[in-house]
């Protein structure tokens, strides 16, 4: 039996097929959770936002139009949630992101070199920290592009900006990341 597309699954869920929703969640839940996690650095917040995001999908099941690609529609919901949260945090004058980088969850796979594992963790922490220090709009573009593989034209469409502006934000973000991570290169040499 051919695999149903996301759009078909969403249509089926709107007609009452709960398994269709489960399949959608299996396909996209982890990606969205990690997008929130990388964006915020806060596992508890990422969990809350993930639930809120899929609750919005559930509530909008009858309004969803299948001519819109499901993954882009889902990302737009996720980005709007992140922006709402960011706006509220700024208004409350709180930190938007956790100061502690997200600890890798995978643990130490059997047979790997603990020294290498430690180095990998150190690098991942440094990258996550550098990512969290970027302005939100640069982080959005970089994550959507690198993590989701969207083109700048698609990102521009989702974020309601021009492709040139998306590229500019990506460039500035990458420039900051390169500067912030330069010390790792110095440590290597």
């Amino acid at each position: 039996m051919p695999q149903r597309s996301d759009e078909q699954l969403m249509r089926d869920y709107a007609r009452g097929d709960v398994q269709a929703f489960e399949a959608l969640f299996r396909r996209h839940g982890q990606k969205i959770y990690n997008l929130f996690l990388r964006f915020s650095g806060d596992p508890q917040l990422a969990e809350d936002l993930l639930q809120e995001c899929f609750l919005r999908v559930i509530e909008a099941r009858d309004r969803y139009r299948s001519e819109n690609a499901f993954d882009r529609w889902l990302i737009t919901i996720a980005i709007n949630l992140l922006r709402d949260h960011h706006r509220r945090s700024r208004r409350r004058n709180e930190k938007t992101m956790s100061e502690e980088p997200v600890a890798p969850d995978a643990g130490n796979p059997a047979g790997t070199n603990p020294q290498l594992d430690l180095e990998r963790r150190y690098l991942q922490d440094a990258v996550q920290k550098a990512l969290l220090s970027l302005p939100a709009e640069q982080r959005e573009v970089i994550l959507l592009s690198k993590y989701y593989g969207f083109s700048f034209a698609e990102i521009a469409d989702m974020l309601n900006i021009t492709p040139a502006a998306a590229k500019q934000k990506a460039y500035r973000g990458m420039l900051s990341l390169r500067k912030k991570l330069a010390y790792l290169k110095e440590q290597d040499t």
């Binding site: 982890q30 990690n34 969990e47 969850d105 993590y147 990341l177």
Partner: peptide, 16 residues
């Protein structure tokens, strides 16, 4: 390229 690779290799967590 190194920055891009480091971003790509960020760990992925399962949904709680």
């Amino acid at each position: 390229t190194a920055v891009g690779q480091a971003l790509q290799e960020l760990p992925e967590r399962p949904v709680p």
